[in-house]
């Protein structure tokens, strides 16, 4: 039971932070299929930073680890500008742009990783090795039955994510900027006449999605393989998109969707382990979260409604 919660959270939270990025972008009216590419590029930036800097820090230095998150965030944000430029300035079809960003991201990071490993570090490799991110346990709280597992053996980045989600929720629903952002996804013409620059708001929203996806990508780089390699493109971005559509483009229901997914996933693993089934059964068990999601969608999709202006190119001249 404990393991279900521990593993579930460490999988669900990174997905969640990526999904929050997606919510920002889509609530502002920009369809974002690019999350997968954004998280990959973010993780690449963080990984590259660690590879370049590891000589200057002690092994497994927490400072370096946290800095790598910062860099991943910046990297993701910078790369997301491409999506923002394509969608806003170049008026590209937003779905197309998203797909292009993803493909380009795999290409660029794959190319650069090998190229930099060969020419800078002199060893041909397609990955940047990261240090192990130690899990921590809070002594007192972790003793509480069942709930205590939440405070046991968690990655410190999970705390970061929770804090970020709260901040993002606050920005989106309480501040003027959040109000403008949500309005842009509903009626950009109205926002424009209120004297707010629609394209600027959308641009920033996309930057948010890049930054948050970058963090999510970095989490996976640490938690799955402790290195950056093309393996980080394992579909987390698409899962995040599913989660946010499932959550009807709202932060809290999306959070719930991520949790259900994460727990279903770790739960299924544990069942296989508990029943001492052969490891090939874990493949079967892995389908459970996806099947569960589909089933839940069957019941909860009827009233789903995307933001009204989602995917619309905003053209000031159009009346």
């Amino acid at each position: 039971m404990e393991t279900i919660i521990i593993d579930g959270l460490s999988f669900a939270l990174p997905i969640m932070i990526i999904a929050v990025g997606g919510i920002y972008s889509e609530r502002s009216g920009i369809t974002n299929l690019a999350l997968e590419g954004l998280l990959g590029f973010g993780a690449f930036s963080g990984g590259l930073f660690v590879a370049l800097m590891s000589g200057y820090f002690a092994p497994a230095s927490p400072t370096l680890i946290w800095l790598s998150f910062l860099i991943a965030m910046i990297g993701g944000a910078i790369y997301s500008m491409l999506h923002a430029l394509l969608c806003i300035k170049f008026q590209a079809n937003q779905v197309i742009s998203g797909v292009v960003i993803n493909i380009l991201s795999v290409a660029i990071t794959g190319f650069l990783t090998s190229q930099i490993n060969t020419s800078v570090f002199g060893k041909p490799s397609d990955k940047f090795v990261l240090s192990v991110f130690q899990r921590i346990t809070i002594p007192g709280l972790s003793k509480i039955p069942v709930i205590g597992a939440v405070f046991k053996d968690f990655y410190p980045f999970e705390v970061l994510i929770i804090v970020l989600i709260i901040i993002c929720w606050y920005i989106l629903y309480c501040t003027p900027f959040g109000m403008h952002l949500r309005a842009c996804g509903d009626n950009p013409q109205a926002v424009d006449t209120a004297g707010i620059n629609v394209n600027k708001v959308r641009f920033i929203a996309v930057l948010f999605s890049g930054a948050l996806s970058g963090i999510g990508g970095m989490c996976f780089a640490y938690s799955i393989s402790t290195n950056f390699s093309p393996a980080v493109y394992m579909g987390a971005g698409y899962l995040a998109i599913s989660a946010l559509i499932f959550g009807n483009w709202k932060i809290m229901p999306t959070f719930l969707a991520c949790l259900i997914f994460g727990f279903a996933r770790s739960g299924a693993y544990q069942v296989v382990k508990y029943m001492k089934l052969s490891s090939s059964f874990s493949d079967l068990a892995m389908t459970i979260p996806y099947i569960l999601t589909l089933l839940l969608l069957v019941f909860f999709s009827k009233n789903n409604r995307a933001p009204r202006a989602l995917g619309e190119i905003y053209d000031k001249g159009k009346r």
Binding site: S242, L284, M286, Y290, I291, T293, L297, S301, N304
Partner: peptide
């Protein structure tokens, strides 16, 4: 009313596993 993007992604994984 399940968005085809979501169901396709889910089915991708289900088939794969």
């Amino acid at each position: 009313n399940i968005n085809e993007v979501v169901s396709s992604i889910m089915l991708n994984y289900i088939f794969q596993y």
